[in-house]
Amino acid sequence: MKYAEVVTESRITNTTLALLFIFMGLAWYFKSSVWYDIVILIVSLAFIFHSINYCLKARNKSLGMAFAIGSISFFLCNVLKLFLW
């Protein structure tokens, strides 16, 4: 199977939304800010997956790479914020 057949935009979105639903429920149940930070990391990873998907499927590779670099920097910023503060 090709990448375009296996990984679709809707699969990335549905998986991300399911994970967000689970972790937001855990954050609400346990009333812990750590779970909210995990949710932010999931959103950051979703941005990375969307940008990689755009880079591999779209014709404009430079725009996809710019999205990927921005998404990775957003993820690293959130990881540093989580572990350093």
Rank of each mutant, 00 (worst) to 15 (best):
M1R: 00
M1K: 00
A4Y: 02
E5M: 06
E5N: 10
V7C: 13
T8C: 06
T8G: 04
E9P: 11
E9H: 06
R11M: 06
R11S: 13
T13N: 04
N14S: 12
T15E: 08
T15N: 08
T16W: 02
A18E: 04
L19V: 01
L19E: 00
L20T: 01
L20I: 05
F21I: 10
F21N: 11
F21T: 12
F23Y: 06
F23L: 09
F23V: 08
F23A: 02
L26S: 03
A27I: 00
A27R: 01
W28P: 00
Y29I: 08
S32H: 02
S33R: 08
S33F: 04
V34F: 05
V34D: 11
Y36V: 13
D37M: 08
I40N: 09
V43F: 04
S44D: 12
L45P: 05
L45K: 01
A46K: 08
F49T: 12
F49R: 14
H50R: 13
S51P: 00
S51G: 01
S51W: 01
I52E: 09
N53V: 02
Y54D: 14
C55Q: 08
C55T: 14
R59P: 15
K61D: 01
S62A: 11
F67Q: 07
F67L: 05
F67E: 06
A68E: 03
S71V: 08
S71I: 05
S73M: 12
F74Y: 12
F74D: 14
L76T: 13
N78L: 10
N78P: 03
N78W: 05
V79L: 11
L80S: 12
K81A: 15
K81M: 12
K81L: 13
